[in-house]
Amino acid sequence: MRHRPRADTSIPGALVLLAAFVGLVFMVSLTVGGGDYGLRASLAYLTGRAPPDTAADIARIVTTLRLPRATAGLLVGGALGLAGWLLQTATRNPLAEPGILGINAGAATAVVLGISLFGLNSGAGYLSAAFLGAASACALVLLLAHLGGTVTPLRLILAGAAIGASLYGVTAVMLTTHQLAFDEYRFWIQGALVGASPSMMASVLPGLIGALAGGVMLARPLSALTLGDRAARALGHRPAWIRLAVVGVVALASASAVALAGPIAFIGLLAPHVARWLIGRRPIAEVSASILAGAGLVLLADIIARRILAPYEAPVSAVVALLGAPAMIAIVRGRRSRPCSTTGSGF
């Protein structure tokens, strides 16, 4: 843990590097995948040196297929990185994240219920259903973990796993009884960035920007909260309001991610760890790094998903889990039951 003076407002070099890395992965993401144009042709197009006979064709593929997909990856990853950081900091649990805590499942179930019971078919409809579901699941899991006094990391994780599994069951019941919803759901649930249309992204964008702004604003008060409620109150914060705001922002971020690409677990787990590893304890830089790391990870996973089982495409969520589950095991093995201490002295 690094000790930094309070007045340090400079942008850490690591953050700049991370942003550059995300930009790089974004560009690479435009050069791989569907269509007959591989890395070289795509690069030629992007740098304006493509042969004129294929330029139009490449342009079509890049702008209509790959660009929306990469943008969706950016948004989804950023949202999950934010939600993960907020949850880990608020619960002081290094394993907290929207996937493991069942919040993504809450959003997904609400969307499925919306499709099959109320015939939802608009992006805004998806998003509002997802938000309601995510907010309820998030509030429920935090509430349950707090009941009975002490919140052990295990209690929180188990509450989340239980909520997630129960909602999974609800989803399965709805899908087996409503044939219509099944096909649409099937690919979406596996976390596909392909399905994210520009109109969908447009409807999600305002909420997502709100969540990002809220998250960055919450970073400092939330860090104060990790000193304990009494200390936070002495510093002029209101713990109950901060927690409520966390639930709101987490729900908004997860809901946006789920509405765009279905539930993807583990990004919210990995991104904050990457951020802490790169930045150390500085709330605002850390949350920004977590957002960037989430975006980078999703883009990277999406690239892998397109290549790993070629000519098939693997579900992004499965690729992420393949990377994330070993990380979770490493975290459990490394830290044992020690909760993640976020009472850093770097601010």
């Binding site: 239980a162 599994a165 069951g169 019941v173």
Partner: peptide, 11 residues
């Protein structure tokens, strides 16, 4: 069906 009950039971 059992997974729905299961989640509720855990809660």
């Amino acid at each position: 069906l059992t997974s729905v009950f299961g989640g509720l039971f855990v809660l």
